[in-house]
Write a protein that binds this DNA or RNA. Structure first.
Length: 567
RNA sequence: UGUCCGAUGGUGUAACGGUAGCACACAGCCCUUUGGAGGCUAUUGUCCUGGUUCGAAUCCAGGUCGGACAGCCA
C-alpha cells in the first residue's frame, strides 16, 4: 500500500516498530495489543494515554486490543474498580468486543507454568522470611547472596510448591522464586519471587487460591497466552524486560510478545498516583473518585470534558521515552476546541443584579430568537423571554469603569444580546452603599430589525428575564491539585499534596435562561463569555440543575478569577 | 565504584547525515449588535567538549544533568 506523505502523520517510535515488524513479518503481520489495568482504583488521565495508544494502535493497524484486568493481588482489588474501568474505557470511545480477560482466569495455567519452571530446574521454593529475603538481595551496587534453599531438588520443590497451593503454610513463610542470578546487576534478576502465599479472598476466585503469582510472572505469560504481539507499558517496567523475556524463554512459550516502554503522562500541578488519589477519597478531601477536581476519567466526565477532547489531547502529547510534564493549558485547549464545536450557547448570570427597564410596560412580554450554536447551523434557535425586569451580571456594570471598559456604566449604553440597547439612568444602593438595582431605559427601535438596530454600541452583555429565570447552583472549579516539590523527608522521594483551597467555589443563586431548566444531566453549554459548563449528572434534579464549570474561555481567565475571588 | 533509559524554545513533540518544523503557552495587532470565536505578526531551541564528514540535532568518544530499579505491589 502506498501512502501520500502529505496525509501520513509522522509515526511515533512505537508505531515505527510495528511498521517495521509488519515489514519483516515478525508477528505474522498481526497486531494484538492490550490495556492491562490492575482493578485497584479508578482510571485517570494517565491511563487515558495508554488506552488511546493501545486501542489506537490496534485500530490503526487493523488489529485488536484486549482489556485485561491484572488482578493478581487480591488484597487491593475490588469489583467496583472492575466496573468503573470498563465504563471509563467505553466512555472514552473504545471497545474490546469479546476480548475481556482477567489474569485470574489464568491462575491454573500459570500454576502449571510454575510447575514446569520447577521441573526444568529454574525455580525453587524459598523459606526465607521477607526480612531475610531483603537482607540477602543486596543493593543496586552490592550483589545479593544465594538463598540456602536455592539448590533444593526438583522433587522437593514440587512437593513444597504443591503444599503451598494446598494451604499448608502460613502467609509469608515461603515463596516460589525464579532461579536466575543473585549477582545480577539488575535487581529484578536476583531470583525474584514469582509466587507468594496470600490467604485472602479474591474478588473473582474467592478462596479457591491461597498462592498468587507476582506481576513479573503473570504478566508476560498472560500476554503470551493471549497472543499479544506488542506489550506496551510505561518506562518503569524497562528494567523488568529482561525478566519478562527470561520467563518466556525459560518456558519456551510459542508466543513471545515484545515489550515496548513509553514515558507515562504527567500533568503539571496534578497528582496522578492511585495511592494518593485514593487517599484524597478516603480522607474526604474530595467527594469521591468522580469529584470534578479529580484527574480521573470519571472526574473529568463529570466535570464536562468530552471524550473527544481527551482523545485529542492524548494524540497531541505524543509518545516518547522522555520524562515529561504536560502543561494543563494543552488539555484545556483541547476541551475548548471540542466544546466550541459541540456545546450549545446559553445565557446565564452568575452574580445577578436586577435591572428594571422603566420605559418597558409592566405587563408586556416578548420573545427573541437566540442561536444555539454559531458553529453548527443545524443546532437551530430557541426562544428567549424578555420582560421589564431582567438580571445582568454584576461584572457587566461598573460605577467607576476602568479604561477600555465597554459595558454598562452610569449614563452609558450597552446592548442586551439578542434584544435592545439599554441606557443606565439610575443606580439604586442599599444602606451599605452596595449597588442592588439599576434603572434603565430601552431604545424601543433597537431590537433586531428595528430602525435603530444598527446603532454602534461598544458593549454587548447577556441577561436573563427575571420572572422566567431559573435559579441554579453553579460550581466553579479551579485547577485540580497542586503538588509540592519533593522535600527532604525520610523517604526523600515523596510529594506533599494538598487541595487548592480555591479549587471549588459554589454560587448558589445564579440566574439562568429558562431553557436550561430541563437540560439533561451531562449536557454541556457555553455560557457566553463565562466559559463552558455542564449539567452535573450526580447532583442535578429535574427542574433544578447544578452546573459545573468545565473550563473557561481562553481570554476569560483573569476576569473569571477576579469575579470568583470577589464572591 | 552498579544496571538500564533519556536530554531539541516556557511546555510537549517532529526532523532517521542535507533549509531545525508543528502544537500549546506568552506578547502585540486586526475583526466582531461578541462566535471571548477567527485572522495576522513576533520573540524564544538542538546539554557540554572533542572527533568523523563537503555537511551532524542525527554517527563516534568522553563528560554533565535528569529519571527508573533495592515490595512476598502493579
Amino acid at each position: 500500500m502506498s501512502s501520500t506523505p502529505e496525509t501520513t502523520p509522522s509515526l511515533d517510535f512505537i508505531r515505527q516498530i510495528i511498521v517495521e515488524d509488519n515489514k519483516t513479518g515478525k508477528h505474522g503481520g498481526k497486531v494484538v495489543t492490550r490495556f492491562p489495568p490492575e482493578p485497584n482504583g479508578y482510571l485517570h488521565i494517565g491511563h487515558a494515554k495508554s488506552i488511546c495508544l493501545n486501542f489506537g494502535i490496534a485500530r490503526q493497524f487493523e488489529g485488536v486490543c484486549h482489556l485485561r484486568f491484572d488482578d493478581t493481588n487480591p488484597t487491593r482489588e475490588d469489583v467496583e474498580y472492575v466496573d468503573s474501568i470498563q465504563e471509563d474505557v467505553h466512555w472514552l470511545g473504545f471497545d474490546w468486543a469479546d476480548k475481556k480477560f482477567y489474569a485470574s482466569d489464568y491462575f491454573e495455567k500459570l500454576y502449571q507454568f510454575a510447575v514446569e519452571l520447577i521441573r526444568v530446574g529454574k525455580a525453587y521454593v524459598c523459606d526465607q522470611t521477607a526480612d531475610e529475603f531483603k537482607a540477602n538481595r543486596g543493593t543496586p551496587t552490592v550483589p545479593g547472596k544465594d538463598s540456602p534453599y536455592r539448590n533444593r531438588s526438583v522433587d522437593e520443590n514440587l512437593d513444597l510448591f504443591g503444599r503451598m497451593r494446598k494451604g499448608e503454610f502460613a502467609d509469608g513463610s515461603r515463596t516460589l522464586r525464579a532461579k536466575i542470578d543473585m549477582a545480577s546487576p539488575n535487581i529484578h534478576m536476583r531470583d525474584p519471587a514469582i509466587y507468594r502465599i496470600r490467604k485472602a479472598e479474591h474478588h473473582r476466585t474467592g478462596n479457591q487460591w491461597c498462592i498468587y503469582p507476582m506481576y513479573d510472572f503473570a504478566h508476560c505469560l498472560s500476554d503470551s497466552i493471549e497472543g499479544i504481539t506488542h506489550s506496551i507499558c510505561t518506562l518503569e517496567f524497562e528494567v523488568h524486560r529482561p525478566l519478562y523475556d527470561w520467563i518466556l524463554d525459560a518456558l519456551k512459550t510459542p508466543c513471545h510478545p515484545q515489550q515496548i516502554e513509553f514515558a507515562r503522562l504527567n500533568l503539571g500541578y496534578t497528582v496522578m498516583s492511585k495511592r494518593k488519589l485514593l487517599q484524597m477519597v478516603t480522607e474526604g478531601n474530595v467527594s469521591d473518585w468522580n469529584d470534578p477536581r479529580m484527574p480521573t476519567i470519571a472526574g473529568m466526565r463529570r466535570r464536562g470534558y468530552p471524550p473527544e477532547a481527551i482523545r485529542a489531547f492524548c494524540e497531541k502529547v505524543g509518545v516518547a521515552k522522555r520524562e515529561n510534564i504536560i502543561d494543563m493549558a494543552l488539555l484545556e485547549y483541547c476541551v475548548r476546541e471540542e466544546l466550541n464545536k459541540s456545546a450549545h450557547r446559553a445565557m446565564a448570570v452568575l452574580h445577578p443584579i436586577k435591572v428594571v427597564l422603566t420605559n418597558y410596560p409592566e405587563n408586556q412580554a416578548e420573545e427573541f430568537d437566540a442561536i444555539n450554536n454559531p458553529e453548527d447551523p443545524s443546532a437551530g434557535t430557541r426562544k428567549i423571554p424578555f420582560s421589564r425586569e431582567i438580571y445582568i451580571d454584576q461584572d457587566d456594570f461598573k460605577e467607576v469603569p476602568p479604561k477600555k471598559y465597554f459595558r454598562l456604566v452610569p449614563g452609558g449604553e450597552v446592548r442586551l444580546r439578542y434584544a435592545y440597547i439599554i441606557k443606565c439612568e439610575k443606580v439604586v444602593k442599599n444602606d451599605q452603599g452596595e449597588v442592588v438595582e439599576l434603572h434603565c431605559t430601552i431604545d424601543p427601535g433597537s431590537k433586531a430589525g428595528g430602525p435603530t438596530s444598527g446603532r454602534k454600541i461598544k458593549g454587548t452583555i447577556h441577561w436573563v428575564s427575571a420572572p422566567q429565570a431559573i435559579s441554579a447552583e453553579v460550581r466553579l472549579y479551579d485547577r485540580m491539585f497542586t503538588v509540592e516539590q519533593p522535600d527532604a523527608d525520610a523517604e526523600g522521594r515523596d510529594f506533599k499534596t494538598f487541595l487548592n483551597p480555591q479549587s471549588l467555589v459554589t454560587l448558589a443563586n445564579c440566574k439562568l435562561e429558562p431553557s436550561l431548566a430541563n437540560a439533561a444531566p451531562g449536557t454541556r453549554f457555553q455560557f457566553e463569555r463565562l466559559g463552558y459548563f455542564n449539567v452535573d449528572p450526580v447532583d442535578s434534579k429535574p427542574g433544578k440543575p447544578v452546573f459545573n464549570r468545565t473550563v473557561t474561555l481562553r481570554d476569560a481567565w483573569a476576569k473569571i478569577e477576579q469575579a470568583t475571588h470577589q464572591s
